[in-house]
């Protein structure tokens, strides 16, 4: 009896010991593998292809570690791309500021120069108007830059809330009406039932105004050539989860090849050379829409129309 007990006990102890031994060995191997993965992360080495396609936990870990490494490398690359963009931006910006600044300098020199006494009252006010216009241009550029930088560093938090869309649209139109009628451009809104859409009223208004400003600018350029007057139409369509606001003008149009480019920062179309602007308006509108979980699209036929569609989430 005693003998049996001793044998059973010995067998039990043996199995326990074996279990503990294998468990420890498994753990040690797992930790070693984990250690290897972390080493690779630290030294940023490329992965071992064989390891990531096995049906076991270590393989899954290696796979995830690779993804972490990817994210790290990508972000580092993005920082350097961003650096290049900023360098390009500074050179663009100095170019943008040069023209109005030299205009101001030239007009001021004329007003203050030796022949200033001979100037007629009419000439004086013309030079002064020139200074005012250039200063206004600089002011506009400055405001755009400030908005852009604040949006980009998230200094401004857009708060999209469920709010009626109609007042946002009418207020935006209100602020562009004077500029439009000065160029004999009519603005009309297709009738729609007012509805609640997730948006930040103040910023959405800004985005709409940016699009309308473009429409006014480029419609004017077009209507000089043709006898038809400028016309801007706004319409609202409801989709299953988005509401679409479309702003259509009968201006110069945008060639298909440029559709994807015009939303980029500081992009200026080939046919925009003779129209004042910095390539900020559409970019700002894009950022504003994105910050409200919306998006923006363009459709156009050169010489016929341009339609920008702004998509906002339904409530």
């Amino acid at each position: 009896m005693l003998l049996y007990s001793v044998i059973i006990l010995a067998v039990a102890v043996f199995f326990c010991a074996a279990t503990v031994f294998f468990c420890l060995r498994y753990l040690r191997r797992a930790f070693d593998a984990l250690d290897g993965v972390l080493d690779r992360l630290l030294t940023r080495e490329a992965g071992l292809p064989a390891e990531i396609t096995k049906e076991n936990r270590i393989s899954k870990l290696v796979h995830k570690a690779n993804r972490v490494l990817d994210a790290y490398v990508t972000e580092a690359a993005q920082v350097s791309t961003e650096k290049e963009t900023i360098q390009g931006f500074i050179s663009d910006l100095s170019h943008q500021m040069k023209t109005p600044l030299s205009g101001i300098t030239m007009n001021a020199e004329l007003l203050l120069g030796n022949d200033a006494d001979d100037l007629t009252a009419e000439e004086r006010s013309e030079f002064l108007r020139g200074i005012a216009a250039d200063a206004a241009g600089l002011q506009w550029l400055m405001e755009g830059l400030i908005k852009m930088s604040r949006l980009e560093v998230n200094a401004i938090q857009l708060v999209p809330v469920c709010a009626p869309l109609k007042p946002t649209i009418t207020d935006a139109i209100g602020s562009i009406l004077a500029a439009a009628s000065a160029k004999n451009i009519s603005i009309s809104v297709d009738a729609f039932d007012d509805l609640y859409v997730k948006h930040d009223k103040r910023w959405m208004q800004e985005a709409i105004v940016n699009i309308l400003e473009n429409a006014v600018k480029y419609s004017a350029a077009h209507s000089r050539q043709s006898h038809a007057g400028g016309k801007i139409t706004l319409s609202v369509t409801t989709l299953p989860s988005y509401t679409k606001l479309t702003i259509t003008d009968n201006g110069a149009g945008i060639p298909r090849g440029e559709w994807a480019k015009i939303f980029k920062r500081f992009y200026r179309g080939d046919n925009a050379a003779d129209v004042a602007g910095a390539g900020l308006g559409l970019y700002l509108a894009t950022v504003i829409l994105e910050k409200q979980n919306g998006y923006i699209m363009v459709d156009s036929v050169v010489g016929e129309f341009t339609a920008f569609s702004l998509f906002l989430q339904n409530c």
Binding site: A71, L239, S241, Y242, K244, A260, Y295, V298, F311
Partner: peptide, 30 residues
């Protein structure tokens, strides 16, 4: 149009790389 918006938005939010096949140039601009 609705689904595309969702795809674009999620790509941005979740920092996802996306390759989309289409025959439609209008959709491609996104």
């Amino acid at each position: 149009q609705d689904v595309l918006g969702a795809l674009k938005m999620t790509a941005k939010q979740f920092k996802q790389t996306i390759v989309m096949i289409t025959h439609n140039e209008h959709i491609a601009q996104l």
